[in-house]
Amino acid sequence: MQYLLLIYASESEETKMNEAAMAKVLSEYHEFTQGIVQGGQFKGAERLRPVASASTVRVRNGKTVITDGPFAETREQLGGYYLIEAKNLDEATAIAARVPSARFGSVEVRPIWPIT
């Protein structure tokens, strides 16, 4: 079996953390990741940029509608994901618009936060 672990946390709480606290969490993440890599359980992981950088793509009547923000409707639930490479947001949203569910649901496009 494979499982996707979805991580939820309060962005506003995170921004309140001081540098030392943030460094501690990051090192815990590092340790955790190493742990599951060594255990052979790791498939992939990325940190996402904050929701303010999100855009949502829907296709209705053949027309692509792009909006600011992560506003999935409350009756919509997370059903899957793709990790893609695109040169900019226009290319990313064009690919998102081709996801079949974009025609009846919505596809949130959120940039990956590069690890430095």
């Binding site: 940029r49 303010a52 950088s53 999100a54 600011d68 900019n88 947001l89 226009d90 990313a92």
Partner: peptide, 21 residues
């Protein structure tokens, strides 16, 4: 500030859109 941050973080291009857009 938020708008400029979104442009940078989301990768909104500084380009004239392609013909189809």
């Amino acid at each position: 500030v938020r708008a400029k941050k979104k442009i940078r973080d989301a990768g909104i291009p500084y380009e004239t859109p392609p013909p189809q857009l």
